[in-house]
């Protein structure tokens, strides 16, 4: 790096010569600083990689003994999950079904609502309204999930029971709906950012062809932002799959393989919470089962992320 060229306002050669020595000295210090900063940044990057690797290592090393006792085939196909019973069965399917059902309900709420909100905020709302609505929405994701869980049990479930009194006090529908509300801001906020970063030139092109606002928003801006919107969806899925408190509180903790959203069921995360709260001795198979469940969750989220990354690449637009 040439330090002299970076010093503005050097008037004459004499001045350059006079300041040459301290400049060289300074550049040596600057060089050392540069190295130091580089090293610091590398350390920070390695730190997060190391933590991720550590998590994977713990999951795998704790789950491995579990799979030595329970064959993977049984784990994936058995229809009961009763690791704490006298006659334990280890089939992940009921938990997986619970997770996928609550996630599905949440996405069915959050994707349309979040997307429509994003389109409205980005293309229709006056700047002043947007500046109020967006932070308020984002505050929604700052609410502790415990609060959402109790909201589901105390408010949403009674409401559902008014429609059909047979609905149990703990059910997946209520938990899923509230979880959907919780992830709306993830989708709306990120999608809105993606749509707003679509260049004005593209919108003008559409308007110039005679399109109105709605057609421009849906036919030009939305597809142009699809990659960013896909990223928002991916994050929302990951958030819903990993969500713990709402489902643990509102969906019940009884693992059951069911396709009825009105049933109560446990999700993978709810089971992990339940077991880790109990007084299971360290090293037992029941204790190890939470790592197997956690590993499943990890694979599930990883899968969604990979699909999301593939979709993002597929729909990336170079404008």
């Amino acid at each position: 790096m040439n330090a002299i060229s970076q010093q503005p306002g050097i008037a004459s050669n004499a001045a350059v010569r006079a300041s040459a020595a301290p400049v060289r000295q300074r550049s040596a210090i600057a060089g050392a600083m540069e190295k130091l900063i580089e090293f610091g940044l590398l350390l920070a990057a390695l730190f997060s990689v190391a933590i991720t690797a550590g998590i994977v290592f713990v999951l795998v090393s704790e789950a491995a003994p579990f799979f030595r006792t329970v064959p993977i085939g049984e784990f994936l196909t058995a229809r009961l999950w009763t690791p704490l019973f006298a006659e334990p069965r280890y089939g992940i399917m009921p938990l997986l079904a619970g997770t996928l059902m609550t996630t599905g309900i949440a996405l069915a709420v959050a994707m349309p609502v979040g997307t429509i909100l994003a389109i409205w905020l980005s293309e229709f709302a006056p700047a002043r309204v947007r500046e109020i609505v967006k932070p308020v929405l984002e505050m929604l994701s700052a609410v502790p999930t415990v609060v959402f869980g109790y909201f589901a049990v105390m408010s949403v479930t009674p409401l559902l029971q008014k429609i059909d009194s047979d609905i149990p006090a703990f059910n997946m529908l209520s938990a899923g709906l509230v979880m959907g509300v919780m992830i709306v801001p993830y989708i709306s906020s990120l999608s809105e950012d993606a749509m707003r970063s679509v260049p004005m030139l593209l919108r003008e092109g559409s308007y110039a062809m005679g399109a109105g606002r709605l057609k421009t928003a849906i036919r030009v801006v939305f597809p142009a932002a699809l990659s960013g919107i896909g990223a928002a969806y991916t994050l929302a899925v990951a958030r819903a799959v990993g969500e713990t408190m709402i489902v643990a509180i509102a969906a019940g903790q009884q693992p059951s393989l069911t396709v009825n959203p009105l049933d109560s069921a446990a999700t993978i995360t709810a089971f992990i919470v339940q077991v880790s709260l109990g007084d299971l001795p360290h090293g037992t198979i029941g204790y190890k089962s939470i790592f197997a469940a956690g590993f499943t969750l990890f694979v599930l989220t990883l899968g969604f992320n990979l699909v999301g990354a593939w979709l993002r690449r597929r729909f990336r637009q170079a404008y």
């Binding site: 030139l201 003008e204 308007y207 005679g210 109105g212 036919r219 597809p223």
Partner: peptide, 20 residues
């Protein structure tokens, strides 16, 4: 303005094809 844009087309400074 939509009526006018239906009758008068425009080509812009930078190419701006739609994501289609």
């Amino acid at each position: 303005p939509i009526e006018m844009r239906m009758r008068i087309s425009m080509v812009f400074q930078k190419p701006n094809p739609f994501p289609k």
